[in-house]
Design a protein around this nucleic acid. Structure first.
Lengths: 182, 182
DNA sequence: TCGAAATATATCGTTTCGATATATGCACCC
DNA sequence: GGGTGCATATATCGAAACGATATATTTCGA
């Protein structure tokens, strides 16, 4: 989904400012499967409003720019539904973490331990956060089921790292990348 | 990792042409945690060669452009190691599939079934492919362990979808997105 | 009291990508 | 034999996205 569609998705949950939309991508349920930076959010909001898919109300604030609150329109809802009515392509997944681990043989055991332990801690924290924010809302089971999907994935990743931590560390330092290439 | 670093990573495994590097990102072990399109690969190869991190040998071909085969240099290896010696940021994950499922309540049961069944088939195929391409190479356990990580993730995702398929379909069609907004 | 973070609006240069251009060989189907 | 699609090769370019930055006040914690 392009940034306009994901902004529509966020606003389908309720009105929000550009800053708040960014927070949805950083911390909300969307943070596990969508992204958007200020650099693309603000231009997208402008274009969506101009296209009639959003409305915007400005609230004056003291010592700060006016807060612009966006709401999705009926046309916006229809555009969102249209965008979701195509078979989705494969997910896009980029992991510096797995990239580094892929070359475990060429890293020091100390470094591999540090990287893995930091990731284990991060997954544990995410899972705690996800356990705290349960969607109890009746009638909206889609978010809850997707939330469960995310928990399953993080738990599986965490389990694998914990179970294979020693194997990764044991594999480390066995090959000098430069020497191996010669 | 930026495209230059991931190209160095691919070439750390062995020499390759731009076209072959792209294949690594599409089908090889990197396909599960890195991406690169022709639009970024070819410019990156040019810059890396100019920076002395790669060398390039051209092989004449009949009826086709000369094949340019790139190899990593010692300096390239060092640059790669340097890039891997930073704590990796959170992974980046974009999923149109989860985005659509998030709004399951607002989709028809037929559509949700189609989307989930296509994804189940896709995960099964990926797992079959991954089972076929086992890294048996002694001394390079990093790739094998990362491969296992990927298998664990795909298996967990597949299990969750199979187990919750009926719940997703049952949740679908319960809320009219446009009507709910009014 | 002070420093950092949060709250707000944005832009812009850089990076990345998807589509496209060019062209042959091969495989498959009719 | 002809047509179509895919694979194999080199690339570019316009569009999209992002990371860093600018601006400035309020809030919060030490």
């Amino acid at each position: 989904m392009d940034i306009k569609t994901t902004c529509l998705g966020v606003l389908a949950l309720g009105e929000a400012s550009g800053y708040e939309i960014r927070k949805h991508f950083e911390e909300g349920p969307f943070s596990h499967f969508a992204e958007g930076a200020y650099g693309s959010i603000y231009p997208a909001l402008g274009r969506l409003t101009q296209a009639g898919l959003l409305t915007c109300v400005e609230h004056a604030q003291d010592g700060r720019p006016d807060k612009k609150v966006y709401s999705i329109t009926d046309a916006g809802h229809h555009a969102l539904l249209d965008a979701m009515h195509k078979l989705p392509p494969d997910d896009k997944y980029k992991s510096d973490f797995l990239f580094i681990l892929f070359f475990t043989d060429h890293q020091s055991p100390e470094w591999v331990a540090e990287v893995i332990d930091a990731r284990i801690a991060s997954y544990r924290e995410k899972l705690e956060r996800m356990a705290e924010c349960e969607f109890a809302e009746a009638g909206h089971r889609g978010p809850r089921l997707v939330h469960g999907f995310g928990v399953a994935i993080y738990q599986s990743a965490l389990d694998y790292l914990v179970q294979n931590r020693e194997a990764f560390i044991d594999a480390a330092g066995r090959t000098d990348l430069v020497q191996a290439a010669e």
